[in-house]
Write a protein that binds this DNA or RNA. Sequence first.
DNA 1: TTGACAAGTCAACACTGTTTACTTATACCG
DNA 2: CGGTATAAGTAAACAGTGTTGACTTGTCAA
Lengths: 198, 198
Amino acid sequence: MNRAEAAEACADRARVRDREATRQRILDSARELFTSSGYAQVSSRMIAAHAGVNVALINRYFGAKRGLLAEVIASEAVFPGIFEGDVQTLPRRLAEYMVRRFNEEGTPLQRALEHSGSDPDLQTVYQERLRNAIIDPLADYIGGPDARVRASLVASLLVGVTVLRRSGGAASLAGQDPTAMVRRLEHCIAACLDTEVG
Amino acid sequence: MNRAEAAEACADRARVRDREATRQRILDSARELFTSSGYAQVSSRMIAAHAGVNVALINRYFGAKRGLLAEVIASEAVFPGIFEGDVQTLPRRLAEYMVRRFNEEGTPLQRALEHSGSDPDLQTVYQERLRNAIIDPLADYIGGPDARVRASLVASLLVGVTVLRRSGGAASLAGQDPTAMVRRLEHCIAACLDTEVG
DNA sequence: TTGACAAGTCAACACTGTTTACTTATACCG
DNA sequence: CGGTATAAGTAAACAGTGTTGACTTGTCAA
C-alpha cells in the first residue's frame, strides 16, 4: 500500500495536501453548519473541527469568517426557476413559492439567513445578495416604469414575510389554508408590482 | 459641604449608592449606544464605561446583555400615534410614516433594530416586540375577518422595507419622490389589508 | 456603635475571530 | 536520484467578547 492509497483509505488523518480539496471541505462544512444552526451560532473552530482542518486555514482561504459565508451564499439559488414563464403570472408563482417554503421549513440557505439575516457581520454580504440575486433580476424581468422601485417593494414583502416566518406573526401566517394564503400573497405582490397607483 | 452635596457635585466618582439610579444610568447608556451603533457592535464593557459603572452590574441588574436590550426596546414606541384616527386612512398614515422615517434616518431605536434585527441574541426579543407592539395592536385596530393575517402581511411589508432600507434596494426606494413613494406604499399596504382577494 | 445587607468591585472563566511565526509535505530541477 | 523552493498545514498567542463568583465597602436600622 503506497502513500496515496493510505491517505485515501484513512482520509481523516494524514490527508494528502490538496489546496482545492481542503477549501471545499471547509466550504461544505460551513454550509452544513450555517444551514442547521445559523451564522453567528457557528464558530470558526467548530467549522474547522467539522472539516478536520486547522482553524487558521479558514482565514487563509476565505480571508475571514464572513468571506466563508459570502461564498456559501453565492453558491445558492434564491428563486430557482421563478423567472421562467409569463410576467403576468409572476405574482402567482412567487406567492406559491413563498407559501411552499413557509410550510416546508424553507430551503437550507434561507434558514441560515432567517437565523442571522441582519447580523452585523453579514449585512454587507446579505445586502449585496439581495440586490444581485433578487432585486436586479426581478427588475429586469418585470420591466416597465419604475421597475427597480416595484421590484424593491416585492423584495421587501418577501424579505418581511421571511423575517416574520418564525416569529409570533409567522404563526398567524403559517397556520392558514395554503391556497387562501397564496391568493392573499399574490394579491399583495401584484399590488407592489402595479405601475399605476393612485 | 456635606457628603450628599459632595456626591452630587462630583457625580462621576464616589457616587451615592442608589440601585434605581444606577440601573437607569445603565439603561440610558445602553439606549444611546445601541441606537447609534447597533446591538452587536456595542460591548457590555463599553456600556458600563459610558455609564461610569462596573461591568458586572449589567448582569446583576439585567441578567444579561440581551435583557438590557429587551428593556430598551420595551421602552420605545413603535408607531407613535398611528392608531389614532380613521381605519380607512391607516394605509396613508403608515405609508407617510414609513417614507418620513426613510428619509429622516429613522427613529433611534428603529436604527438599532435595522442594524441587528435578526442577531441571534435578539431574535426572541425582536419577535416578541414584533407581535406585541405591531401585529397584535394592528390586528385589533383593523378588525374584520383574518385580522391577524392581514396585520401580519402589513407588518411583513414594513419590516421588509426597513430591512431593505440601507441596502442596495434602499437606494432605489429612498431616492424616489416622497409623495409618489407614499402613494405607492399606501397602495401596497391597502392591498395587504384587503379582506377580499381575488 | 455595631451588625446586616445591599451595592459595587475585581479577577477570572471560557469563548470568539484573527494573526504570526513556525513546521512539514510536495513537486520540481539539476 | 537528491536537494531544495514553495506551498500547505500547524500551534500558540493576541485582543476582544459575555458572564460569573468571591470579595470589599458603603449605608441604614437597631
